[in-house]
Simulated assay, not measured.
Amino acid sequence: MLAVILVALVFDYTNGFHDAANAIATSVSTRALSPRTGLIMAALGNFAGAHLGGQVAKTVGSGIIHPPSGMSGLGIVFAGVVGAIVWNLITWYFGIPSSSSHALVGGLVGASLGAMLFGVDDATVLWGGIVEKVVIPMVASPLVGFTLGGVAMIAIMWIFRKGNPRKLNKGFRYAQTASAAAMSVGHGMQDAAKTMGIVVLALYAGGYQDNTSHIPEWVFWTSSTMLALGTYSGGWRIIRTLGRKVIDLDPPQGFAAETVASGVLFTTSWLGVPISTTHTITSAIMGVGATKRLSAVRWSVAGNILVAWVLTFPAAGAIAVLAYAISRWMF
């Protein structure tokens, strides 16, 4: 049990430094925030947002897999989280913004399928819940982010069409402080909640509680703390990709992208739908940039992100199968 909880918290930490870019990349690239100030804000926002993400935690804990009780169930959760951690580290090393959320789901599914291959017949994958709560939002959230990012940017350009560019940039740099803070809270609501769901799933599989809907208070605090620490450590490779390589952002564009992305995160967290913060902010950035001109978006970089988006689920799942095969003797 302790090993599973520890590996879940390690995932939480890697999630923090892998996805730190989601909250602050645009604000850092437009110089609205210094990198260190941005990371402190992101860490605090993640910590606060974690306590508001209970609905997402319940979805992760009960809507993706149903592990058997006992040691075999703990082994599935352990291998699933290992699969997500390894994929996070691979994509972080290459500076590719991928989804920690989809890596986690893919890892859990892969570990469950691996357990079935090794004769654990009562391991169950809840395919209906995955389609409804993961696959549909996985496709819809980037489309929504891209569309709303474009709409928001067009609205800003029309409203401030007669404004002084220098004064507008200065004003939007201040506004980005608020939008980046909202993005940080939304990230905490989504991503810390996923670790909480994993810990609750482990407690259920280990027989320490009889359902997956109750989240102990200590789980809130440990998950939010680890995510905040990981965020503060920073994911500079991915911050550079989101902040500069996709498009060169100015303060109004950064504000539009962050406002749209945080709105999507708040809404889906309230509905209990786990989505990718990475894909949401990336698609919003591309939608904002496309209003300037289509060539302003570096589509080759966007293509690499898309490839990682497609590969994340099966790659994390395959790694989890291997992790289960190696670690099942422990459980």
Rank of each mutant, 00 (worst) to 15 (best):
W87I: 10
I76K: 07
S99V: 08
T147E: 08
V199K: 02
F266W: 13
V260P: 02
T177N: 11
H102N: 11
K292Y: 15
R293G: 10
L89I: 11
H51D: 02
M138H: 10
I305Y: 01
V109D: 01
Q55V: 05
G254P: 10
D250E: 14
L148Y: 06
T195D: 02
W329Q: 11
I76F: 10
I305Q: 01
L168Q: 10
T259N: 08
S27V: 04
D19P: 01
G145P: 10
V264A: 07
V264H: 06
N46E: 04
A20F: 00
S223R: 05
V82G: 03
T195E: 02
V273L: 15
H51K: 09
S269Y: 06
L113P: 00
G54I: 06
I285K: 05
R166W: 09
V134Y: 00
Q209V: 07
A111F: 07
I159P: 05
G287T: 07
I156M: 11
A180H: 04
T259I: 12
T280R: 05
F146D: 04
I5P: 01
L265C: 08
S233Q: 06
G45A: 05
F94K: 13
L227P: 02
T267D: 01
L9H: 13
M183C: 08
H187D: 08
A103M: 10
V307L: 14
W221D: 12
S27P: 06
T241Y: 06
A290W: 11
G197R: 06
P216F: 08
G16I: 00
K162P: 00
T291A: 10
G234E: 01
I154R: 12
Y324I: 15
I40F: 15
P252F: 13
G287E: 04
A261W: 03
N164I: 07
P314N: 09
I64A: 10
L306S: 14
G107S: 07
R244L: 12
N169H: 12
P251Q: 12
N15C: 09
N88S: 12
T280H: 03
P165C: 11
